[in-house]
Design a protein around this nucleic acid. Sequence first.
DNA 1: CGGTCCGTTGAACCGAATCAAAGGAAGTGG
DNA 2: CCACTTCCTTTGATTCGGTTCAACGGACCG
Lengths: 205, 205
Amino acid sequence: MIGTFVHFPRGSTILRRGDHASCVYNLVAGVVKAGSVSAEGRETITAFHFPDDLVGLAESGLYVNTATALEPVSAYRLPLAPLERLLAADSTLELHFLCKLCHELREQQRHAILLASDSARTKIILFLHLLDVQNRLTGGDGDIIRLPMRRIDIANYTGLAVETVSRTLRALSREHLLEMDDTHSVRIRARPEFDALVRASSDGA
Amino acid sequence: MIGTFVHFPRGSTILRRGDHASCVYNLVAGVVKAGSVSAEGRETITAFHFPDDLVGLAESGLYVNTATALEPVSAYRLPLAPLERLLAADSTLELHFLCKLCHELREQQRHAILLASDSARTKIILFLHLLDVQNRLTGGDGDIIRLPMRRIDIANYTGLAVETVSRTLRALSREHLLEMDDTHSVRIRARPEFDALVRASSDGA
DNA sequence: CGGTCCGTTGAACCGAATCAAAGGAAGTGG
DNA sequence: CCACTTCCTTTGATTCGGTTCAACGGACCG
């Protein structure tokens, strides 16, 4: 392979918006947030990335988002120039990348659906669903959802205020839909109701 | 080429969410809206597509969105099976598709930024900017923006109520930022201010 | 001429943002 | 190990923007 295996400690920056895009990263372990910070300090998070995702979308040679490790991260760093040569030679691999991009596109669309949903409640439910799906893929315990990000990251991803995120999670927990052990993990207490809410919220996406 | 040139009248459905995905369309002329309608009748619009865009994103063999022609549309219909063979053989063409997907991904991200922005005003400004950029590419008159979609489509894309869309557009027009000749086209009256607002709203995306 | 759909406007309500503040968790240095 | 700082999370009170409900004018069409 042309890549090198690299590690990033929790909180470190993997790549920065506006920098010359030299590599793309294929995530192996750990969760990454991707977004940007405006001049006034407001952070916008466009995506969370999980193992097997690609990180490092570029536009006209520059990274579009800043990517930060929310946990210790391992990834394959793939330099673009050799990668392009490889893709030109191996069309099966290229098709594989094409599929990955389609997947990212779908994820981004789900994010849009989340953002477009009216109530804070719905947004949080859809957000939890996102993590839920991911946790199952990664082979976690059935009903326990790990939240590797802070509340403010959830806020910036869902377009809500931090206070609203906190309040909504607490409300769901008060209604016995969820149970919150520590701040960074929730357990789904009423799976059927939860799934029903998800389906009702997402147009069935 | 493997495609056939096809036309769709205004208002017609190009493809339907959930249908077996047999073709992808390469738009040549006309604007398309892509989205889905929930059981309760609420429509969610995930994207507007313009000439040179790809239409027909699929997931596990099924179309993800319903695509509707907002104007008379011309497109190349590309059947998937031959297309895959062609891509496997021609890796330059495949790279071209990869780039298109990256572009779509960026667009979808911009949509997310729009939806995440706080005020109705900002959303409308970013929406107009989207059309503005497109109109320049298509080589339209500098400051005139054509709105091929109805108010309700704008509402469903921006996540606002129709009334709010109307009110906000009127407000911008009252402030002499815009001028509205007929309902389906606006003229940017204060370009510098408009561009400044766009930059302030989008984190510079 | 009546019907329907679309765009616009007005008034009232409501949910989330904002402002303010307190309780925890984590890390630092003595 | 503890005192201290700092950041994160949570809760409460208030404000405000956008939704909702209602109604009207206009365009298009049968």
